[in-house]
């Protein structure tokens, strides 16, 4: 038995159980009497929204990696750093810990998030029933790790604040930082718009 069959929905904010008017279809919305949030039996157009945001973040991920994150201007000239060149720099100079932090936060996490979301959308869309628990865990993982990608944006902004010696030696943010920021925001929004209950819908449908 699922809550949706009894016209019961759970408020996304305060977890209050809300009874829906008896109506067919998954597009019904109600308001939580306790906190006023909109409650859906299932988020409307969850898959389409998530897919759209994931595609947008894939597109933005390309310039995020190709364009420089920052320009370092010294008396010797201007040097530009991309995400990957930063990681390579740390690895070559022996800062393995920092190198791997940047690698995990800026490369592994966004790619992993995009892949997980694509996988979840695929399995729900094709009514795959296998391993709902594992897929639920994957979803929780994307929610938890998403924000950590911001590290690189912060590094650029802190470096820029500290290396500021009036024209002679300066760090400026590159176009890659803006695109990377957009990737982080879009993947966070994508994870939020995915409705994990869909995982369990397809899981149950096949058992019934």
């Amino acid at each position: 038995m699922r809550a949706i069959n009894r016209n019961l929905g759970c408020c996304p904010t305060c977890r209050q159980l809300v009874t829906f008017p008896p109506k067919k279809g998954g597009e019904v919305a109600a308001y939580c009497p306790r906190c006023g949030s909109e409650v859906h039996l299932r988020k409307s157009h969850s898959l389409q929204n998530t897919l759209a945001l994931v595609i947008a973040s894939i597109i933005f991920y390309i310039p995020a990696n190709l364009l420089p994150m920052m320009h370092v201007q010294t008396f010797a000239g201007t040097e530009s750093d991309t995400i990957m060149s930063g990681v390579i720099y740390f690895m070559e100079t022996g800062s393995y810990l920092i190198g791997s932090v940047i690698f995990i936060a800026s490369i592994l996490v966004p790619v992993l998030k995009i892949l997980i979301l694509l996988y979840l959308i695929h399995t729900v869309r094709h009514h795959k029933a296998a391993k709902p628990k594992e897929r639920q865990k994957l979803y929780l993982l994307t929610e938890v790790i998403g924000r950590w990608s911001m590290v690189d944006v912060y590094v650029v902004s802190i470096m820029l604040a500290l290396v500021h010696f009036g024209g002679l030696t300066e760090i400026r943010a590159g176009g890659g930082a803006v695109f990377f920021l957009l990737v982080v925001i879009l993947t966070m929004l994508a994870a939020m718009s995915f409705d994990p209950r869909l995982i369990w819908d397809t899981a149950k449908e096949q058992h019934a």
Partner: peptide, 18 residues
């Protein structure tokens, strides 16, 4: 989800090492 002070702290540490 949009408050990221803890992430910022890691950013500070990375910048210092850099």
């Amino acid at each position: 989800p949009w408050g990221m002070l803890d992430v910022f702290l890691v950013g500070v540490l990375v910048s210092i090492v850099k």
